[in-house]
């Protein structure tokens, strides 16, 4: 009897919750959790979204930081948070596929499926402006002549940058040494300070550093507007399009229609020309993967990363 009553109560609660929520969601400010320290790409793009969120959704978004373990601390907590749509979280790929594949990080990729993927920062190889490497080929030649002496700085171990470095080694058939830093900024500082030979990072960092650096190659389909003179890996003969994809996720048990609503809001912000302009200027590439295409997209990524993950595990 007791069990029955609870079941009735829960169902009733769920029904009222879903119907009343989705119709006029959001009715109060939404907490937007960034699983990193402020200042990185996840934070900056969330700040860009924040400026437009209230126009689209009619409510503010409140940004909060929960850094730790390359994002894993926050992602592992996602499903303990209230699943009412008022807590959304930034989630990044390949991180969310990579981390659980390599170590027990307290969550599985399935636990953090995004509601929307809204942009990616293309991988880019960046060197100092006074570096002897004028082209990617110069770098590859040097790395072949002196195996292991090419040092790539990047953000974190078993991270997106680490995976990119490993995949580059496989593609170009060289051996480089990957040096992990606590974020993209420290890696760039080490590059500018001449402590490492190159940075395996994103286009965005190349823009921030301005003319102190030279970008050798970018992992996009077509050239990036901010770097009209920099070739893509494809042009240089490597079939490599990759970067860090960022999306917005919600706890698993969030009602489907609220999830859809969040997906719509983020999509609408993404369609704003002013917003697009700002992101493109800063080196981001907009993509639109809404919630109904997410499952296929994740499978594609899994297949894409598989080989690199094996190499990382072997390290």
């Amino acid at each position: 009897m007791k069990r029955f009553l609870t079941a009735v109560a829960t169902t009733a609660a769920l029904v009222t919750a879903t119907t009343s929520f989705a119709a006029d969601y959001p009715t109060k400010p939404v907490t937007y959790i960034i699983p990193y320290n402020p200042g990185g790409e996840s934070d900056v793009t969330a700040r860009f979204q924040e400026a437009y969120f209230s126009d689209v959704a009619g409510q503010d978004v409140v940004i909060q930081y929960k850094p730790g373990a390359g994002g894993a601390t926050a992602w592992a907590q996602l499903n303990t948070l209230e699943a009412d749509g008022y807590t959304i979280m930034n989630v990044n790929f390949p991180h969310a596929i990579l981390q659980p594949a390599i170590k027990d990080v307290g969550y599985q990729t399935e636990d953090v499926i995004p509601a929307y993927i809204f942009h990616y920062t293309p991988d880019a190889i960046v060197v100092r402006a006074d570096s002897p490497y004028q082209t990617l080929q110069d770098m590859i030649d040097d790395a072949k002549a002196n195996p292991g002496s090419l040092t790539f700085g990047g953000s974190g171990t078993n991270s997106a940058n680490h995976l990119a470095a490993v995949r580059f080694d496989q593609m170009a058939d060289v051996t480089s040494t990957y040096i992990p830093f606590k974020g993209s900024s420290p890696a760039m500082a080490a590059l500018l300070g001449n402590q490492i030979k190159a940075a395996m990072t994103y286009t965005t960092q190349g823009i921030k550093a301005g003319d102190q650096v030279r970008v050798l190659a970018i992992a996009t389909d077509e050239r990036v507007p901010s770097f009209p003179d920099v070739p893509t890996f494809k042009e240089l003969g490597f079939d490599y399009v990759a970067g860090a994809y960022r999306g917005v996720t919600l706890p698993k048990d969030t009602p489907q229609d609220v999830r859809q609503k969040v997906s719509d809001i983020i999509g609408e912000i993404n369609a704003n020309p002013e917003f697009q302009q700002k992101l493109i200027e800063n080196g981001y590439v907009l993509v639109d993967i809404p919630t109904d295409q997410m499952a296929d997209w994740i499978e594609e990524r899994r297949a894409e990363y598989a080989e690199g993950i094996e190499a990382l595990k072997a390290n």
Partner: peptide
């Protein structure tokens, strides 16, 4: 340099 020294610096940079 675009390299924030502390978390508040990073937020202001953003």
């Amino acid at each position: 340099l675009g390299i924030p020294g502390t978390p508040p610096d990073a937020i202001i940079l953003g």
